[in-house]
């Protein structure tokens, strides 16, 4: 068992080494494409400056953009796009909710702070869930610590939607396949 794990560690190390080159390459390509799209000038000076700048950025910060080689990226991104559609509708609902609470003469708000556990692991999934919570009706993420979300809710009802129904957590977990 231990030998198997060691072998796995070695393989991961090699993967990490090839992953580093892969990360640099992907970062360089993304940065250079971004440069071309923003500048829109294709003479030697501008393109050369773009190549140098993208190379420096790729060497310094290749581990920011590409962290791990995920599996099933295609299916995940497809699910993510579907999730974005649902999320947009939730954002519109959230805005009408805030508008109702703000413009109502008595301001029906009753703020409370709640806490719940999450089973998500990867950074991207956590960021997606945190930003979704911030943008959906009546809740804002304050902190994520050791798999615990700290959320400020503007009233009892949106807090219950997170604590009891857990629609959004289940949806994000479905998207990233991390239950």
């Amino acid at each position: 068992m231990r030998g198997c794990e060691e072998g796995k560690g070695k393989e991961e190390k090699m993967n990490a080494k090839s992953g580093k080159g892969f990360g640099i390459l992907v970062t360089f390509c993304a940065m250079f494409l971004f440069w071309l799209l923003l500048s829109g000038i294709f003479d030697a000076l501008h393109v050369g400056a773009g190549i140098i700048c993208s190379a420096i950025i790729a060497l310094i910060s290749h581990d920011l953009l590409v962290k791990e080689k995920g599996d099933k990226m295609l299916s995940k991104s497809f699910r993510f796009v579907i999730y974005l559609g649902w999320e947009l509708w939730q954002i519109v609902l959230a805005n009408f909710d805030v508008a109702y609470r703000v413009l109502h003469p008595k301001m029906p708000i009753d703020p409370l702070i709640i806490e719940f556990d999450t089973s998500l692991r990867s950074d991207f999934a956590l960021v997606t869930l945190a930003n979704s919570i911030t943008l959906t009706p009546g809740t804002i993420t304050i902190d994520i610590k050791d798999g615990k979300f700290l959320v400020h809710a503007i009233a009892k009802k949106p807090a219950d939607a997170l604590l009891v129904d857990k629609t959004m957590q289940n949806k994000v977990a479905d998207v990233f396949m991390e239950w």
Partner: peptide, 25 residues
Amino acid sequence: TGVIGLLRLPDFYTRLHATGKCDTL
């Protein structure tokens, strides 16, 4: 709506509710 929330809501946290959502959309 976001600006009215920023001016009208009672404390810092609830004000951020108004600006974080309404301004983004």
